[in-house]
């Protein structure tokens, strides 16, 4: 039997492309977790807001795409800061489950707002990426996926270097693990919180624009966040490297499942991996193990 290698390679590359976007969104998630210890289930919806803001600016206000993207990203950042101040800050010190539920509530609010303004009909973002087909060897890669991957890769590389060499990385972790002590050490805790949510929202917005460009935007885009949740569990909730590796891994697995088994198997495959990881290595590939003190 002649195995269709080309198909496999194309599926694999498409998976990498999707994986890059997963990794990027997971990066936003990890940033929030590293700084505030919050498991943000609304990450998919934050991605959606970025995409819709861009859409709104480009269509309703007729801004050129590049400007629309920039403004959308900045506006998303501000929205992130508002969300943090209004809903997350008051929950400081509450149980993680309660904060988790707050993010669930926030996700719902964001979906509702989007549906209110733009209805639940799927839309298309105006084209802004080069349209020429990209060929790697004999394999065809959809151009948007390719360029999206490049952008994601670039951003992740920047993030990795920043966390490797920046003093602030320690401040981030200090704030997450013990706010009171961090405060008395001179770390401006509220500012760390706001900053982390702002930057994370901006990253999610960029991911949203790319995802929107590839597959259109709709009010159910947030379901992307469920796969990202699996990515961060597999990679480790507080690991940037984990987000990268796991993101690519899950992207490829989903693509393989979708290509060989059928679309409905994608989410199943992802969640089966989640179950396995939770049983075998709950803290993920690169996450830090929290030890319970008796």
């Amino acid at each position: 039997m002649d195995f269709d290698w080309l198909f496999l390679v194309e599926i694999f590359l498409a998976g990498l492309g999707a994986g890059g976007l997963y990794a990027l969104t997971a990066l936003a998630f990890v940033l929030i977790y590293k700084a505030t210890r919050v498991v943000n289930l609304a990450i998919g919806e934050m991605l959606m807001i970025g995409a819709y803001l861009c859409f709104g600016l480009a269509t309703a206000m007729n801004l050129p795409m590049w400007l629309a993207i920039v403004v959308a990203v900045i506006a998303s950042g501000m929205a992130g800061a508002v969300l943090e101040r209004v809903a997350i800050r008051p929950m400081l010190g509450e149980s993680p489950i309660a904060v988790f539920m707050v993010t669930v509530g926030l996700a719902s609010i964001l979906v509702g707002v989007v549906e209110l303004v733009w209805t639940s009909e799927p839309r298309r973002l105006p084209e802004f990426m080069p349209n020429t087909p990209v060929m790697i060897g004999e394999a065809f890669v959809p151009p948007k996926v390719f360029y999206g991957f490049l952008v994601a890769a670039a951003l992740i590389a920047v993030a990795l270097t920043v966390f490797r060499f920046w003093r602030g990385g320690v401040a981030l972790r200090a704030t997450a693990s013990d706010q009171q002590t961090a405060y008395s050490m001179g770390i401006n805790v509220p500012r760390v919180f706001s900053l982390s949510w702002t930057v994370a929202a901006m990253i999610a917005a960029i991911a949203g624009v790319i995802v929107g460009a590839v597959g259109g935007i709709s009010s159910t885009m947030g379901v992307f966040g469920l796969s990202v949740l699996v990515v961060v569990i597999v990679g480790g909730l507080d690991s940037v490297l984990g987000a990268l590796v796991a993101g690519l891994f899950i992207g490829v697995v989903e693509s393989l499942a979708g290509g060989y088994l059928g679309g409905e198997y994608k989410l199943l495959a992802t969640f089966l991996i989640l179950i396995v990881v939770l049983m075998v290595r709950p803290y993920g590939l690169f996450g830090t193990h929290e030890i319970e003190r008796l």
């Binding site: 926030l106 719902s108 964001l110 707002v113």
Partner: peptide
């Protein structure tokens, strides 16, 4: 429908 979704989320928060 969207208002219901928003109220739902707002109640939780």
């Amino acid at each position: 429908s969207p208002v219901r979704t928003i109220v739902f989320g707002a109640l939780i928060v």
